[in-house]
Amino acid sequence: MLDFLRQFWNRDSDSSRQIAKKRLQLVLVHDRVNVSPSLLEALKEDLLEVISKYMEIEEEGLEVNLDRFENSVALVANIPVRRLKRSLEQGRLS
């Protein structure tokens, strides 16, 4: 009976079955596109360099990851902005 109740009230997303599935989906995203952590790190640095020309960003908060989105893979970047630069020229000159 306890099991029965547990099955009903335990939220699906908390079960180790769902955790395993999610971890697997994420690890396969990386496996399948064959991206190494060092490649992602290099991409992060390049992104930082380009974006810094236009705005001031928080380097510590920068997150770049490959993620699963529906049935495709997406590059998801989370880039906290501290402040925008006043003009493009200024940005380009710096």
């Binding site: 547990r6 099955q7 699906d12 180790s16 395993a20 599935k21 697997l24």
Partner: peptide, 16 residues
């Protein structure tokens, strides 16, 4: 274990 949510099931693996 699958029914209890403690093991990946057939549908999970096939989907992946």
């Amino acid at each position: 274990m699958v029914r209890k949510g403690d093991m990946m099931g057939i549908e999970d693996i096939i989907e992946i």
